[in-house]
């Protein structure tokens, strides 16, 4: 029981919140529920696509390939490729920390890994989904700016670490 609560504390809290509010403001809460479910139904097709595409990438994009193109000799090209690769990954960032450490240990440049983590903020599979909510101009500008910043971030991290 405690385990379930720990794992689903968020879901349980929302559920409890609804039960309480339903007693105090039945009409308003019912509308809130309807709105939430309607939003969910509208985004489900894209969500299914996101999940399918991420799984495809996680199985068919081998880390070996990635390691080959972002070693020390890769130069600026490696940093750019690292950035592009970073945009392809989805999932919580912290799950990938060990993967990034592997890259570093296998001889990837700090700048490449730094840029990759920076570019992780762009989740390519999610872009159409995000655009559905915020509009294409908003998303495209954010994507371009974030990529530029990721490259810069990679170099800055590398510089800061090497001058330590």
């Amino acid at each position: 029981m405690k385990n379930i609560l720990g794992k689903y504390w968020f879901e349980v809290s929302v559920g409890l919140l609804y039960v309480v509010l339903l007693f105090v403001f039945p009409d308003k809460t019912f509308f809130a529920f309807k709105e939430g479910i309607w939003l969910l139904v509208k985004m489900l097709p894209i969500f299914v696509c996101v999940v399918l595409f991420s799984s495809f990438l996680s199985i068919f994009l081998s880390p070996k390939t990635v390691q080959r193109v972002m070693g020390k000799e890769s130069g600026f090209k490696g940093v750019v490729l690292g950035t592009l690769f970073g945009t392809l990954i989805v999932g919580p960032l912290w799950i990938l920390f060990p993967l990034y450490r592997t890259f570093l240990r296998k001889g990837a440049r700090v700048a490449v890994v730094g840029a990759m983590i920076g570019a992780f903020a762009i989740k390519t599979p999610w872009i159409p989904y995000a655009a559905g909510f915020l509009g294409w101009p908003f998303i495209l500008i954010t994507v371009v700016l974030t990529m530029l910043y990721a490259v810069l971030e990679g170099y800055l991290i590398e510089k800061a670490i090497s001058t330590k």
């Binding site: 689903y8 968020f10 879901e11 929302v14 559920g15 919140l17 609804y18 509010l21 403001f25 308003k28 809460t29 509308f31 809130a32 529920f33 309807k34 709105e35 939430g36 479910i37 939003l39 969910l40 969500f47």
Partner: peptide, 16 residues
Amino acid sequence: PMLISIFLLIGLFDRF
């Protein structure tokens, strides 16, 4: 489950 809860929470946020 997380997704459903988030959207329900957004519904609440919007109304309240």
